[in-house]
């Protein structure tokens, strides 16, 4: 994970693209331009944090189509639409698809920068969240089936004795599982363990099953 976010500009109007990249760079953003959706998909370094400034109309797949395709792939790259003319259906479609902002050309510098800042914040947040989830899942994966059962019951608020009784094992054994689980997941207390289970539960169904 590189620290500097990258702003991707996808616009088929070279003149506009040049101007916008020029502005973004002067404003301190790292920015890269693409003439079409295909060029972006081929050349954009997806591993880097950043955001996408996307025109609606593009030769080949449109901006909306690119946006929807990225989402379908699980990309969390925030998208700011910037287009010459927006009709209501296009705006609705973009916002429902999770776009950060929908701007029209010519765009005021501050409005654009504000949108970019929000996009990058969201990106960071999402990346953090998804990093924690990944760590949680990774820990979850190291748990044995018995440890997972014990974890479920701890999260349910049961005491060691109840858990021992339920699972038909000795209370000392339950304590051992609890200690192992906490170590594997890297938590220091039972309360913290409970919050973690809660977060695990909030992770989407797909993430759990695919995991």
């Amino acid at each position: 994970m590189s620290a500097t976010p990258l702003v991707h500009v996808v616009d088929d109007d070279e003149s506009f693209r040049t101007a916008l990249l020029r502005l973004l760079r002067e404003a301190g953003f790292e920015a890269r331009g693409y003439g079409s959706a295909g060029e972006f998909l081929l050349r954009a370094p997806v591993e880097r944090p950043g955001c996408l400034v996307l025109d609606l109309r593009l030769p080949g797949p449109s901006g909306l189509e690119l946006h929807e395709a990225l989402r379908a792939r699980g990309s969390t790259l925030p998208v700011v639409f910037l287009t010459g003319h927006a009709d209501v259906p296009a705006v609705v479609r973009a916002m429902k698809g999770g776009a950060v902002e929908f701007l029209t050309k010519p765009v005021e510098r501050e409005a654009l920068f504000e949108a970019l800042r929000r996009a990058l914040e969201r990106e960071t947040r999402q990346r953090t969240a998804s990093g924690e989830a990944a760590a949680l899942l990774a820990g979850w994966k190291t748990l044995t089936p018995r440890e997972r059962e014990v974890l479920e019951l701890i999260a349910a608020g049961k005491h060691n004795k109840q858990i021992a009784c339920e699972l038909g094992i000795a209370e000392r054994t339950v304590k051992l599982y609890r200690a192992n689980t906490m170590a594997k997941l890297g938590v220091g207390s039972a309360a913290e363990l409970g919050r973690m289970v809660e977060r695990l539960r909030h992770l989407s169904e797909e993430m759990l099953t695919s995991a």
Partner: peptide, 11 residues
């Protein structure tokens, strides 16, 4: 029209 206007403003 907005395309060149946008470019102008950004420039």
């Amino acid at each position: 029209i907005n395309q060149p206007l946008g470019a102008i403003l950004s420039n």
